[in-house]
Design a protein around this nucleic acid. Sequence first.
DNA 1: TCAGGCGCTTAAAACGATTCAATACAGCAT
DNA 2: ATGCTGTATTGAATCGTTTTAAGCGCCTGA
Lengths: 383, 383
Amino acid sequence: MTPPLQSEPKLPDDAGHREASVKRSDTGVTVTMRDVAKASGFSPATVSIVLNNAPLARYIAPATKKRIEETARKLGYRPNAMARFLRSKRTHSVGVMLIDITDPYCTPILRGIENSLYQASYAPILADAHNQKNRFERSLEMLLERHVEALIVVANWTFVDIHLLADFNKRNIPVATIGWELPGDTTSSVMVDNEAGGRLAVEHLHKLGHRKIAFIRGPKMLIDSAPRWKGIQKFANSVGFEIDQNLVAQLPDSLDPNSGFEGGFRLTEELLQRRKKFTALMAFDDLTALGAIRALTKAGLKVPEHCSVTGFDDVALSAMSVPSLTTVRQPLETMGNLAVNNILEGINAAQEKRDWAISHQRTSPELVIRESTRAVSLSSADD
Amino acid sequence: MTPPLQSEPKLPDDAGHREASVKRSDTGVTVTMRDVAKASGFSPATVSIVLNNAPLARYIAPATKKRIEETARKLGYRPNAMARFLRSKRTHSVGVMLIDITDPYCTPILRGIENSLYQASYAPILADAHNQKNRFERSLEMLLERHVEALIVVANWTFVDIHLLADFNKRNIPVATIGWELPGDTTSSVMVDNEAGGRLAVEHLHKLGHRKIAFIRGPKMLIDSAPRWKGIQKFANSVGFEIDQNLVAQLPDSLDPNSGFEGGFRLTEELLQRRKKFTALMAFDDLTALGAIRALTKAGLKVPEHCSVTGFDDVALSAMSVPSLTTVRQPLETMGNLAVNNILEGINAAQEKRDWAISHQRTSPELVIRESTRAVSLSSADD
DNA sequence: TCAGGCGCTTAAAACGATTCAATACAGCAT
DNA sequence: ATGCTGTATTGAATCGTTTTAAGCGCCTGA
């Protein structure tokens, strides 16, 4: 089948490099390991051992190694990943499942994931569930068929029931979730410490002298909502600050990750209509905060002069809005890295038949103070 | 090797479904096609033919089909993609190369790509070059080894020299670029019609009565910059509007996709210092526009009351900023779809040994009018 | 002289599918 | 009987690697 190659080709010395690049893959088709073997005069086995630097490579004569490597380079040999994977059972790929890529929160996480995977020479196979359960399932199916060595799920609500991931567990494929977690001990997770974050934001406002603070809580279905609120309450209790229930609103459940903007806008208008004065507003997340700012502006209130506003997440736009947004930063990229480290650990453990413990990591949020908050003004503090 | 399975298992009737899910993959390991063959009492060949609905399936007895399909389901059989690919030479995967995922412009494109690929049952293998040439190369290498059937490159500047993609051409792997194009006819591309877009924006401002318009041109290295400017000039000529060179600034080249914000801010401050009055500012893209708005606001000028501002791209944040941004929308998601259609076409053509022509598509931009522009006010128009 | 060891290399068997050519059989015309 | 056609199924080769166990010289110490 393969066209006959010179059995003992003269290896060109350094001066020949130029034409080497010309002669590359002269057949026009794929050059296989067999070709390299034939061309170099050794067997496929030897070629494999040399090119992979397998344990046995210790015994291979340096001259042989050199010969093979040069031949491979000259022919432009590239290993066929499929064949390799079929034999070695290792695909060196990881499934990355985004519940909704439209969520601006995903992008930095994705970068973190990609970067760490790249360092470790794993390829990410991307899937976007569009918030649809059947897409989620079909994509998981696809990832299983491709024998990904691990799975990372980026989500922020309780979308998946456990049984969908059961197949992964059954096959001992490590799974890690970001921004969301599964009960039980089958799946590692990485989340920001929402409670600490909630506290951070309200503490900041409190320190600035705000006592009439409005809150827009997150939708019930988002796993982040409850702990953030809890952080707020705990802080309030600890300093004897009383939350006025008339100043509390809650975002409705929604599938659209960008609905927070609209929701923040609407709820803020509603809060304003209640005619209960507030000097600060703590929004569930950045988009909500931007919606709130828009409503306040529309009502003729200036941010931060008349009302301070805080967000949560620190998505890209927060720094660019006018005014720029004081917010609680989630270390999103880092969270991506952590998740990858986690599943890499899992893969290695499985490889070495070690046991390995599921972990639930909490990353520390960080308060980023920008222009949307300032000390309460005397005029608004009274009354 | 494989544990003996019942050679002729009683296929459960419908009532037995519950336990079927319990018995699934009882061995705990992967169930192969051989297993299905043994369990159903047919040969692997038949199983393959049935499960893939291969041409030969016409001849298979309906009873046999049913039998095999049920057995497969019951055992939880999932084809091993690697094995399949090795034999059939088709990986059903496509490389998606982002020059920098951090660019907000990427996200909608990525969604478009993922979505179209999903519909066509292709899996995207993601790579992010981080704007680094060596990463770009290494990632291409990886994609080649994985035998992707096509490649999509999302970039907006002239990053890659052609020879990096030569290997793909050599192997007849279709390549399409988005937001950027290669000279010659080796690579398809999808771009927005920048010239039309530039015209759209300036025409809008002109119609609103603006005659003192400042421009922030894009960085030289971005392929978009020149045609947008050309569109502006052409429009200006056509209506006899003269561009004041004192009101023209240009963003410096930069690798950071988010540098437009900073750049827009700085250049606007600079423009303001020139003490040449302008009633509108047309920014190269949305981020630049947001930077400009920030600078204007800082200088005590209100947008749009004192100065209208337009952007370009319509990234997610444009609708949420205060004021929301009038901009020229690129149909980003559609562009992703188009690129996929294109390479799919290429794949099919190659499959059927047809010839197939490279295409360079231009999508139509769309003017999105929001709050950041308004008719020139009388007070500012004179003087 | 021989067993054993060392240093280097390879034959051959997987891996799990696809696919071609071959077979087996029934029915039917010659 | 023979050949033919069409239906239903399968054996065996193949894809390009990895990996195990073995092979082959040659040397060395007994």
